[in-house]
Amino acid sequence: MSTTDTTKGESKETTSGKELVSIFVMGKKYEVPKNLTIMKAMEYAGYKYIRGCGCRGGICGACGTVYRKPGDYHIYVGLACQTVVEDGMYLTQLPFFPANRATYNLEAIGSDPEEVYKKYPELFRCVACNACTKVCPMDISVMDYISAIKQGDFEKATELSFDCIQCIFPFENYGG
């Protein structure tokens, strides 16, 4: 094809020999070295994290980022500190929104499934659309572990959700 895709940046060689790719942050195009993570690429582009960037090690989940790729209708989600930039990536940092978090004393409530139902009745509104699994930056089968909780199978739910980094919570801790 001879046409030029305007959304797709062209890879270039810098004088230092590093290959560059184009990313878009809040609509603005930046040339950044490939192989950088989203977080490092943004710093390369001149952004400075004053607070809220989290652990930088893929554990805390504070840097959840939504992105799209050129010519692809999917919306992808990843941790900025773990996901490597790709050419033409269009980035949007997740804004702060509080999670619905129940307060309870784990030792006092025991391990009946009903305890979870009491705290989170919205579980029963799940329609199995699987959007949760698709956006999970840790590749957890979220839909399946929610199903397991509804079925009262805590062991299965625990196994499936073990890698969860509670990426919604640190937003509160870091004040967004």
Binding site: D112, E114, Y117
Partner: peptide, 14 residues
């Protein structure tokens, strides 16, 4: 859903 009492929630079948 959030207005349903915990007692009623605990007793109801899924």
């Amino acid at each position: 859903p959030s207005a349903i009492s915990e007692e009623i929630m605990a007793g109801l079948p899924q």
